[in-house]
Design a protein around this nucleic acid. Structure first.
Lengths: 248, 248
DNA sequence: CAGTGGTCTAGACCACCTA
DNA sequence: AGGTGGTCTAGACCACTGC
């Protein structure tokens, strides 16, 4: 395996992906030492700083664990698994044997708010596709889901069937937009009139609000999302590993 | 101001701290552009890569915001919690450069409830240290923190100064209990009378409730914790390698 | 066009760890 | 002693932005 130098995707990210695949495929086992920085430098013919950028990325995501003066090791994969698990509503429902479906509330091409334009890093006069869906577990509405995507990235998306189709499957299949990573921000809030009505809870009922942005491998924003969960029907679980202390 | 080159603290961290102080003191205002990479390179007589390491650190912590081709700007500061790593509140605040202190509300050796004994995997007649603390960012109370630890693991902990000491630092330093991993469960809730009074918010105000257990490397439970955060002052942030939110 | 941040090079020295 | 990761240099080219 070698890296593509005439690719918009940075070398360090290509290397990080390569290592992640080796970890997830089991070529590199949990607790195993990965090749040293110098070894990777020679193997991929890139400079040490670039290797370290790749390792830093995986370290921050919890896939690698560094022991100074000894080496870099594959960390327990629980962390990433559960963090992904944390964000996957449908998967969570299915794994608990619950039937889930969506109700489309809104789907149109329109002008973004200032906030959304900033999140997507587009000019404020660039149109976005706005999607609003209500998502159920069985007959119980669990969350409201808002998505905003730059219109030029997915022309015609506003005419698709968003009730039965998965948005991400559409993006990857029809528009060849391979989502790569995402940021998330979680807070608690109370249901407003609109949310309370849709979800069938009292106004002010405790809700979990998750906002974030999904990106392509080259860091172009593809989607700004906002999800509002009923706190009485949904809990978030995860595990962490303690980071090793390093330099001050 | 100049950096100390014969200091164990890395240059990039010194620069990051320098910029952070300028932001917090108001020398650099929110939304203001900070000097460019080249300007900082010349000003502090360090190389561009080192400047970028400093900026990257502040960016990941949410203090800076980058607009490509334009410049780097001071972001509006928010307290965030990194879900990837198991850190204590104190460590988390300090790493973000925020001043924090605790008010001890309760500290004693006592009999556990059935629930706590089960969480800690100890017999119901085995005593636990119960700690209740109110924790501040500056002058603002942010959360109420309950900890329960098996008494035999940390004899004398009930006589320690829990107002100025970090619990995790004490456990690792004095008792040689190296925390390794933890489980967490998060939900949203409304403040009850007691919580509202302590935190100075209205009854029913949105709160984030996190419960869980911290373990040693051999899976012995060390601590059952329960933290109640003011949702208006504390947000939880994380990144995922692949966004699987809408997977069918 | 000039300025910005993003990426990358090909080395260097250091503190740390094992042996 | 020899290998490891951590830090740092002094440049380079690129894509993007605003003028």
């Amino acid at each position: 395996m070698h890296l593509r130098r005439d690719d918009p995707i940075p070398l360090y990210h290509q290397l990080a992906e390569e290592l992640r695949e080796q970890i997830e495929s089991g070529q590199l086992e949990i607790g195993e030492r990965i090749p040293s920085v110098m070894a990777l430098t020679k193997q991929y013919r890139i400079s040490p700083m670039t290797v370290r950028q790749a390792l830093g990325e995986l370290q921050r995501k919890g896939l690698l664990e560094v022991r100074r003066g000894i080496g870099t090791f594959v960390a327990s994969p629980k962390i990433t698994y559960n963090l992904l698990h944390l964000t996957s509503f449908t998967e969570d429902m299915v794994s608990q044997g619950l039937v889930t479906h969506n109700r489309l509330i809104h789907l149109a091409l329109e002008m973004p708010t200032e906030y959304v334009a900033k999140q997507l890093k587009i000019p404020p006069d660039e149109q976005v596709v706005r999607i609003e869906r209500l998502r159920y577990s069985g007959d119980v509405p669990i969350l409201i889901d808002y998505s905003y995507l730059p219109g030029f990235l997915c022309p015609g998306l506003e005419n698709e069937d968003m009730e039965t189709n998965s948005l991400y499957a559409l993006l990857e299949g029809r528009y060849r937009l391979a989502l790569d990573h995402a940021t998330h921000c979680l807070e608690a809030t109370g249901a407003n009139d609109y949310e309370a009505k849709l979800l069938g809870v009292p106004v002010g009922a405790p809700m979990v609000l998750v906002r974030g942005v999904a990106y392509l491998a080259d860091n172009r924003p593809v989607e700004h999302f906002k999800s509002i969960y009923r706190a009485d029907r949904y809990k978030f679980r995860w595990e962490t590993a303690r980071p090793l202390r390093h330099t001050p």
